[in-house]
C-alpha cells in the first residue's frame, strides 16, 4: 500500500486546491476497489497494484484532468518552459558572477582576495534581479510562441513530452519534519524579494519624514553590514525555492537552512548597535528610543534564531536517525 500512498501523494501536488481532499479520498477508494477485483481474480497484490497505477497514468497526467482552468502557457508547452527556466536560473547568475570576477581581478593591482570576495557579495542583488528579469523575458517569449507559433512546433513538442512513467520511480512520502508548507515558502520568498529590493534599491524610504523633507535613518555602518545581510536573505530564499520545487525538505536543505538561521542570528547581533543609525537625525529629532528598542529587538531576535534553529534542526536529526521512534518507546514504557 506504500506505493499507492506515494502515488496519491504525487497526484496531490498537481490537484487544484478546491475539493482536493475529497478528490483524493474518492480516487483512493476507487483504486482500492479496482485492486481488490484484480486480487480476487488471482493476481499478486503487489504486481496488481503496480500494473493498476501504471495503467492509470502518471500523477501529473491524472491530476491535470481534474483541472478546468486554462493556463497562459499550455500543458504541452509547460515541461519545455520549466527546462528553459532552469537553464536561465543557472546561467544568468553564473554569467554575472563570472563577469564580476573577471572585472574585479582586472581592476586590481596587486590582487587582493578579500576585495574579490566583497565584490562578489556586492554582485548578489544584481545576480538575483538579473535572473528575475531573465525568467520574465523567457515567459513573455513563451506566451508569444503559445499564441502565434504553437502549431508549427506541435510535432517537436509531442516528442519532448513523451511520457515515461514508471510507478517504481514515485518519490517516497516525506516524514513530517520534511513536509513543506506551500504558503510558508511562498510567504518567505515574497518577503525576501521585498526585503532585498527595499534595502538595496529603496533604502531612502527608511527615513524621518518631516515638513516635506526626509532624512535617511540608516548610515554607512549599516551599509557595511548590508552585503552579508544580502547573502543571508538570498541563501534563505534559494533554500525555500528548492523546497517549493521539490515539495519536500531533505537532510541537506534542512542542514543548509540551519546554517542560514545561525548566520541570520549572527547578523542580528552585528546589527544590534546604535551606531547604524544616523546620529545627527536621531539626536536632532529627539528619537533616542528608536535605536534602544531596535537593539533590544535585534538581541531577542538573535536568541530566538539560535534557539528556534537548533530545536528545529534537532527534531530533524532525531527523525532522520530514527531515534524518534526509540524515544517514543522509552516515553511509553515510562508511562
Amino acid at each position: 500500500m506504500e506505493l499507492l500512498n506515494r502515488y496519491l501523494n504525487e497526484i496531490k501536488r498537481y490537484l487544484p486546491f478546491k475539493d482536493r481532499d475529497d478528490t483524493l479520498k474518492e480516487l483512493e477508494n476507487l483504486l482500492l476497489e479496482d485492486l481488490e477485483v484484480r486480487v480476487s481474480n488471482g493476481e499478486n497484490k503487489d504486481t496488481a497494484l503496480y500494473d493498476l497505477i501504471k495503467e492509470f497514468g502518471s500523477p501529473k497526467e491524472v491530476a491535470l484532468k481534474y483541472r478546468d482552468d486554462q493556463p497562459i502557457i499550455s500543458r504541452e508547452m509547460e515541461p519545455m518552459l520549466y527546462l528553459i527556466l532552469k537553464i536561465v536560473a543557472v546561467t544568468v547568475p553564473s554569467g554575472i558572477l563570472l563577469a564580476t570576477i573577471i572585472s574585479s581581478i582586472s581592476s586590481m593591482s596587486p590582487f587582493n582576495f578579500l576585495d574579490l570576495i566583497v565584490d562578489i557579495i556586492r554582485a548578489f542583488p544584481e545576480m538575483f534581479f538579473g535572473t528575475l528579469a531573465g525568467i520574465g523575458i523567457v515567459f513573455v517569449i513563451f506566451v508569444v510562441i503559445e499564441r502565434f507559433f504553437k502549431d508549427q512546433i506541435e510535432e517537436e513538442l509531442h516528442e519532448f513530452n513523451m511520457p515515461k512513467f514508471d510507478p517504481k520511480n514515485l518519490p517516497k512520502i516525506p516524514v513530517s519534519v520534511y513536509k513543506v508548507s506551500l504558503f510558508e515558502s511562498l510567504f518567505l520568498i515574497t518577503m525576501s524579494i521585498l526585503f532585498l529590493y527595499f534595502l538595496n534599491y529603496q533604502q531612502g524610504i527608511i527615513s524621518i519624514y518631516y515638513d516635506g523633507t526626509n532624512e535617511e535613518l540608516l548610515n554607512a555602518h549599516f551599509n557595511s553590514i548590508l552585503p552579508i545581510l544580502n547573502v543571508s536573505v538570498i541563501f534563505a530564499m534559494i533554500i525555500e525555492i528548492i523546497h517549493l520545487i521539490k515539495r519536500r525538505k531533505t537532510l541537506i536543505t534542512t542542514t543548509l537552512a540551519f546554517m542560514q538561521t545561525i548566520l541570520a542570528g549572527v547578523i542580528l547581533i552585528l546589527l544590534s548597535r546604535e551606531s547604524i543609525f544616523n546620529k545627527i537625525i536621531i539626536e536632532g529629532y529627539d528619537l533616542e528610543i528608536i535605536p534602544k528598542l531596535f537593539v533590544i529587538g535585534m538581541i531577542i531576535g538573535a536568541i530566538a534564531h539560535f534557539i528556534g534553529g537548533s530545536v528545529t534542526y534537532g527534531k530533524v536529526l532525531i527523525a532522520h536517525t530514527g531515534q524518534g521512534e526509540v524515544l517514543k518507546d522509552i516515553i511509553n514504557k515510562n508511562k
Partner: peptide, 11 residues
C-alpha cells in the same frame, strides 16, 4: 478509461 471518467463525474 477510469482516469477520464472520474474527473468527468466531478466536473
Amino acid at each position: 478509461d477510469q482516469n477520464t471518467l472520474y474527473p468527468l463525474l466531478r466536473r
